[in-house]
């Protein structure tokens, strides 16, 4: 069976969930060969094997952390040349997309970004995408070269599928461009203790209606009662009430959870672009005319400071 390269997103050896979803998709079109780079690369192997990786190619070098993007492109290209895969799958993070794009130019391939599903087709893998703020769903394929496809989080279930997952060291010779952009300092983002926004099954978001940074505690309390991630509209982020890393929408994160709860958010097109593919959508807004109500499964017209705390209490009571 043809091999499919899967680029691994991990933090010091802890594999992030979107990569496991990629393994599920990769198994639909071939045998997954994982590529893990940087510190902790080898530690990813056990998890990757459990989810279907037949092989795990690893490389570690100071360059991966010290310079932006290009060293990883060099390594992925080395893996591509070693394996001659039928397709290359990369998680759709900002960095993942850049790595994938540069690889695609180098190997003379077309690229599809932000796929939300992938299936085998007669002429190669067919990717589903959601475009124009999720108003349309398209199906596309790469028509030149080896398909390079980046896939959004929550696009496939994580499945156990034990495979060999043998670790093999990848030899990488860095290109002249590799050291072009130096990372002179790096401050890891502080953990909120809540699920990752893009990976969470439930997202609870607040907008301008929340009114202040302090009042976001109302949103957080609801999120915590559900084990959810917290999101924010750009209006709330621009006002400085919540960090930009939590922004949902066109220029923030794009989320696709089982449940999305919007409080005090009007539902502008740029916000919808980041959450419209959520399975179930719920909104609380005091304006019955707010566009968000056009897309909800359940909406409450009311003051969020009345409705949200009552909801939180009720959830706590039901959960006991």
């Amino acid at each position: 069976m043809a091999e499919v390269l899967v680029y691994v997103d991990h933090v010091d050896g802890a594999v992030r969930k979107p990569t496991l979803e990629l393994l599920t998709l990769a198994r639909r079109i071939g045998e997954p060969v994982a590529v893990a780079l940087g510190s902790g690369a080898e530690a990813t192997a056990a998890t990757l094997a459990e989810h279907g990786a037949v092989k795990v190619l690893t490389a570690d070098a100071a360059e991966f952390a010290d310079y932006l993007v290009v060293p990883k492109v060099d390594a992925l290209q080395a893996a591509y040349e070693a394996v001659s895969p039928a397709a290359v799958l990369v998680p759709s993070s900002a960095e993942g997309k850049e790595i994938a794009a540069r690889l695609a130019v180098r190997i003379g391939s077309g690229i599809i970004t932000d796929a939300i599903d992938l299936e085998a087709g007669d002429e190669g893998p067919v990717a589903t995408q959601s475009v124009f703020a999720a108003a349309f769903t398209t199906k596309s394929r790469v028509s030149k070269g080896t398909p390079v496809i980046t896939v959004k989080p929550n696009s496939a279930p994580v499945e156990a599928a034990p495979a060999a997952g043998a670790v093999e060291a990848l030899t990488v010779s860095f290109s002249e461009q590799a050291t072009g952009t130096k990372v002179v300092a790096r401050t890891p983002r502080e953990s909120t203790g809540r699920p990752e926004l893009t990976e969470a099954a439930i997202v609870v978001s607040g907008g301008r209606g929340v009114g202040s940074a302090e009042s976001f505690s109302v949103i957080e309390a609801l999120a915590d009662s559900l084990g959810a991630a917290v999101g924010a509209s750009r209006a709330a982020v621009d006002a400085g009430w919540y960090p930009h890393s939590s922004q949902v929408g066109q220029t923030g994160k794009s989320v696709s959870p089982q449940l999305y709860i919007a409080s005090g958010i009007s539902g502008a097109i740029q916000h919808r672009a980041g959450m419209q593919t959520s399975k179930t959508i719920v909104a609380i807004n005091k304006d019955a005319e707010a566009p968000i109500f056009d897309m909800v499964d359940y909406g409450v017209v009311g003051d969020l400071f009345e409705v949200v705390p009552q909801l939180t209490e009720e959830i706590k009571a039901r959960k006991g």
Binding site: F293, V296, Y298, T312
Partner: peptide
């Protein structure tokens, strides 16, 4: 979807 007006029981 279903849209209800909060009359004091919206959260519930």
């Amino acid at each position: 979807g279903t849209i209800v007006k909060d009359e004091g029981e919206g959260g519930k």
